[in-house]
């Protein structure tokens, strides 16, 4: 299966997905750590994909969303943004609303 197919399958099969550097418990980058903190503060369950473990997914996810950086958050199959947008939406309450909304 191609990287694009694997990404699509993950994003379509899970409500909240975070592509990040490292694991949720051991983030390998400050921006990924910030993204995990936001999701944990909201208290939502999410699937974390470590792009450092898979170079094809690391490049593939950038093409998938037309977004050049990691982390990347997907909710209900939609690309939501990177860590800056996550932080902004967390502070305004938008992210919690988006995640609380029924899919």
């Amino acid at each position: 299966m191609s990287a694009q197919d694997r990404i699509r399958q993950t994003v379509e099969g899970n409500r909240v997905v975070l592509y990040m550097k490292g694991t949720a418990d051991y983030p390998q980058c400050g921006f990924s750590m910030r993204a995990v903190s936001v999701l944990r503060a909201i208290g939502v369950e999410f699937v974390a994909v470590d792009v450092l473990a898979d170079p094809e997914v690391r490049e593939g996810v950038k093409a998938y969303s037309n977004w050049p950086t990691i982390p990347q958050l997907y909710v209900d199959r939609e690309f939501v943004g990177g860590s800056d947008i996550m932080m902004e939406m967390y502070e305004s309450g938008e992210l919690e609303k988006l995640i609380a909304a029924a899919p």
């Binding site: 921006f31 950038k62 037309n66 977004w67 050049p68 950086t69 690309f79 939501v80 943004g81 990177g82 800056d84 947008i85 902004e88 939406m89």
Partner: peptide, 27 residues
Amino acid sequence: NRVRQHQLVYAALGDHMRRDIHALQLK
């Protein structure tokens, strides 16, 4: 939306975003 806004900035930087710039915190 914010995603489209940031994408315009990234597009302006083209390949530099992949090659030279490790992180660009954007508002």
